[in-house]
């Protein structure tokens, strides 16, 4: 019982990570197709104030899995070693790139490319992680016993492409919501095109899941109904996003994408729970003893509303459209850059 609750927290962490870091990885992916240097810079600035809070969710996801389902963590990570390490490499590059661009008055081309490429590779790697996991992990007596490239399969190629597309759509929607002028228009246009590819890819991948090591379990009937309802919600929300990209209002596309992502992920959990590491490791077989779970639920669980508050506050302080009011800054200098650059002479207080 405690383990099931804790699995809910793990699912929450994964969802929060996909929602939050998904949009900023997506903005990085879109940046690769943006020729204009100033617009590239403003895309990075939009990410700069919130990325570390967003990325913290993947750390909490990892630790929650370790503390609550240690046997799953210990078997899953070695199995997904290569894509996970490549993801970590890319996250290092893009994190540092964000700070280096922010703290420089110019926009160094190398760092803005590092941000874009890092985001793309991280998204691809995460797609392979999901695909490799669903495809099944060879576990013998609780220890990973497979090979380095087990994660690579046609199915995981599809999950990788789907992940990139979904993140890019989320990035476009967030950009449309947060920016103005050319950046906003370009985001809306590319969001629409990407959505056309994203929806069929995700649907094909979802149906394909039935043929992996984690076949969808749609019995009893209530479970099947819940699953298909969630799929319908996701598709309808994607339709709303389509309208949002085309006609506005500005926030509609992002709301639509977020709803679709939540519905899609919950459908996945409904479809495969209690399986954690297919084909055999389940919540119960991997769960930590109750002493650990109680401590986690009380200690970590109680702090999660606080974590939500920190995330909300970080977004709240920098709410609204991202603009470039130039009066306090040299031309080309953005708010984030100005805050950590030396401001020679007349400072505002």
């Amino acid at each position: 019982m405690a383990a099931d609750f804790w699995f809910g927290i793990i699912a929450l962490c994964l969802t929060m990570y996909v929602l939050l870091d998904g949009y900023d990885l997506g903005i990085g992916i879109l940046l690769l197709g943006e020729p204009n240097r100033e617009r590239r810079r403003s895309m990075i600035e939009i990410v700069a104030t919130a990325w570390d809070g967003n990325e913290s969710w993947i750390v909490l996801l990892g630790v929650s899995l370790w503390g609550g389902l240690p046997a799953a963590y210990g078997a899953m990570l070695p199995a997904l070693y290569l894509p996970l390490v490549i993801m970590l490499f890319s996250l290092i590059f893009r994190g540092v790139a964000i700070e280096m661009v922010s703290s420089s008055p110019r926009t160094p081309a190398v760092w803005s490319f590092a941000f874009g490429a890092g985001s793309l590779v991280a998204a691809v790697a995460q797609g392979f992680v999901i695909g490799g996991l669903l495809n099944g992990v060879r576990v013998e007596r609780q220890v990973f016993a497979g090979g380095t490239f087990d994660f690579f399969a046609p199915f995981s190629v599809f999950t990788a492409i789907s992940t990139v597309l979904v993140y890019a759509v989320a990035g476009a929607a967030y950009l449309q919501h947060k920016s103005e002028g050319a950046t906003e228009h370009r985001a809306a246009a590319s969001g629409r095109v990407l959505l056309v590819f994203a929806v069929p890819f995700v649907l094909i991948t979802a149906l394909w899941t039935g043929a992996t090591a984690a076949p969808l379990q749609l019995h009893p009937t209530a479970r099947g109904i819940a699953f298909w309802l969630l799929v319908v919600v996701a598709v309808v929300a994607a339709g709303a996003a389509w309208i949002g990209f085309a006609r506005g209002p500005d926030s509609l596309a992002f709301r639509g994408v977020v709803t679709a992502e939540i519905a899609g992920l919950v459908a996945l959990f409904v479809g495969i729970a209690p399986l954690v590491v297919p084909p055999d490791v389940t919540i119960d077989s991997a769960a930590a003893p109750s002493g650990a779970l109680t401590f986690l639920l009380i200690g970590v669980g109680i702090n999660i509303p606080l974590v939500f508050f920190y995330n909300w506050y970080a977004h709240h302080v920098f709410r609204g459209k991202y603009r470039l009011p130039a009066e306090h800054r040299p031309s080309g200098m953005t708010p984030v850059g100005a805050a950590i650059r030396p401001t020679k002479g007349g400072d505002r207080r």
Binding site: S64, W66, G67, L69, P70, Y73, Q142, A288
Partner: peptide
């Protein structure tokens, strides 16, 4: 190691 110590170090 993670599987063995998870119940203590994870939390």
């Amino acid at each position: 190691f993670a599987a063995a110590t998870g119940p203590i170090l994870g939390p």
